[in-house]
């Protein structure tokens, strides 16, 4: 089926997220605006204006009332989803690269950039959904060593924090004591994305080393590896119906103009989650794919690219009939 092209950004996409039901889609880009869309037809619900710099990351809580965004203007902001009101703004020393609500919506984490002499940190705030006044006092600040964090996520039941590092290692943190519980290094380059399975018992990472890996969220055992021929920017686990994963990337944005589109490898690639075999590709972007998100019902997915477009793909009947055993 023809994908729906969402043209709401003027610059490269940085992240897209579905809400828990999957009816809404939130997208952020380097152009300071957060867009909210109806995922089934691509109609725009509205925008959240106010950031002064590239927005790196966005997340929505599980009952779709609160939205958090992290930006290069050194703030993370909390928004009211339904009317676009800014509820709170946390100031940080450096850009906020990654934000995420915990599974029970009681906490948020911010991953901040290492720059201007400030170390990269993971800051945790408690969220009170009943009041707009949020505490500016962090619950904890973790400074990952020796390599800075690039992505992070909450494990199930807020058991651990799972952190992806610049040097390709993955570690588990106790978010109260800042203690490193476990750390493994399988990837050979920066971790670009980290997305959980629905029950958060395992997760997938993508890396510039051209591979994506599936890890056990407790043991950090690398269960599966998917290798491609291009640096990867994003990876998602298909949440329902099929045992697949989707990865996307493309050669570095700085090299794109020198080469043809065919060679850029700007495709979403489907892999069989268990057999690690490539199943198919979805073409369309004319720049590297920066972010991929799958609809929670497993029937559609979206990709956002360096080209400034979000493409919402509703999968064909063939996809559901396809057997690969």
């Amino acid at each position: 089926m023809r994908p729906i092209l969402l043209q709401g950004h003027e610059r490269a996409l940085t992240q897209i997220k579905y809400n828990r039901e999957g009816d809404l889609l939130f997208s952020v880009a380097k152009d300071n605006v957060i867009n909210a869309w109806f995922s089934h037809n691509g109609e725009r619900l509205g925008t959240y204006n106010g950031h002064q710099g590239t927005i790196w990351s966005v997340d929505v809580n599980s009952n779709s009332t609160l939205l958090i965004s992290g930006s290069a203007d050194n703030t993370a902001r909390l928004w009211n989803v339904s009317d676009g009101r800014l509820l709170h703004s946390w100031d940080t020393n450096t850009a906020v690269k990654c934000v995420q609500f915990s599974e029970d919506d009681k906490y948020v984490l911010l991953v901040t950039e290492e720059r201007m002499g400030f170390p990269g940190t993971i800051v945790i705030f408690a969220i009170d959904p009943t009041t707009p006044d949020q505490s500016d006092e962090p619950v904890n600040v973790i400074v990952p060593q020796p390599s800075k964090a690039t992505v992070a996520g909450w494990g199930y039941l807020n058991k651990y924090l799972v952190v992806g590092h610049e040097n390709g290692s993955i570690s588990l943190f106790d978010w109260n004591t800042s203690e490193v519980i476990k750390s493994v290094t399988d990837h050979e380059a920066i971790i670009t994305d980290l997305q959980f399975s629905t029950d958060r018992t395992y997760f997938i990472t993508s890396s510039k080393d051209k591979t994506a890996r599936v890890y056990d969220a407790n043991s950090l055992e690398c269960l599966k590896m998917y290798s491609t021929d291009t640096p990867l920017n994003s990876a998602a686990i298909v949440p329902a119906l099929k045992e697949f994963v989707v990865v996307g990337g493309g050669q570095e944005a700085m090299n794109v103009t020198t080469t043809s589109q065919r060679q850029g490898k700007f495709e979403c690639r489907f892999f069989h989650k268990i057999f690690e075999d490539e199943i198919g590709r979805v073409r369309g972007h004319f720049g590297p794919i920066n972010t991929i998100a799958f609809h929670p019902d497993g029937k559609s997915f979206s990709s956002g690219g360096e080209d400034g477009y979000v493409r919402v793909h509703h999968l064909d009947p063939d996809y559901f009939k396809f057997k690969y055993e």
């Binding site: 199930y156 039941l157 058991k159 029950d199 018992t201 395992y202 056990d216 407790n218």
Partner: peptide, 10 residues
């Protein structure tokens, strides 16, 4: 195994 572990953690 994961499901079991998850239940225990709960």
């Amino acid at each position: 195994r994961q499901a079991k572990e998850y239940a225990q953690d709960c």
